[in-house]
Structure formats: C-alpha cells, structure tokens
C-alpha cells in the first residue's frame, strides 16, 4: 500500500514515540527498529493520525499548509514502510 491523502492510518500499536529536540524517536517493539522522526510537525501529524478520519483531515487539523502535503504524504509513506504507521485496523 502506498499512502495517499485519503489513506486511513494509525500509529502501529507496537510503536512508542519519544519527543526529542529534533523531532522524535520512534521504537518498534516488534521489529526492534529505531526510527528518527526528523521534524516536529511530522511528529505532531503521526501522533494525531488516530484522532482523525484520514491523512488529509489530520494534516488540516495539524495546521499543515496544503503546499506541504505532498512531502508529508511521502514522509508517511516511508513511515508506513518501516511500520511506524499502518492502515487503521477497525476494531470489531
């Protein structure tokens, strides 16, 4: 899956995010990978994903200007590859 504005994402439940001055560190307890979130705005977006219906509404709610959306979609795509975020699983 590649991430788009209409993607419905969540933080991977096995990922912990720790704020740092440059952004944040994310640690995946499953694959034991440490990932660097290199911009505070990306951290805010990642941490807000679960509270909004899709990527676009998350970006809007976080005050990210539309001209920056493509780079955020790209950043989320790479975070999806490293399993920091994933397609939201609907609780049954």
């Amino acid at each position: 899956m590649s991430v788009a504005l209409e993607s419905v994402l969540e933080i991977h439940p096995q990922v912990a995010v720790r704020p740092e001055t440059f952004g944040a560190l994310a640690y995946h307890y499953g694959n034991r990978r440490l990932i660097f979130l290199k911009h505070p705005d990306v951290v805010t977006v990642v941490q807000s994903l679960n509270s909004h219906p899709d990527v676009q509404s998350t970006l809007t709610a976080c005050g990210v200007a539309p001209e920056r959306w493509p780079s955020f979609v790209a950043a989320l795509s790479s975070l999806e590859t490293s399993e920091v975020v994933r397609e939201r699983q609907i609780a049954s």
């Binding site: 720790r18 704020p19 740092e20 001055t21 440059f22 560190l25 660097f36 290199k38």
Partner: peptide, 11 residues
C-alpha cells in the same frame, strides 16, 4: 541528525 545526537538525547 548525527550533529543532533552529538548534542545528546533526552534519554
């Protein structure tokens, strides 16, 4: 990023 890490992390 390496420069950031040289300045130390919060933990």
């Amino acid at each position: 990023l390496v420069d950031e890490m040289k300045r130390g992390l919060d933990a």
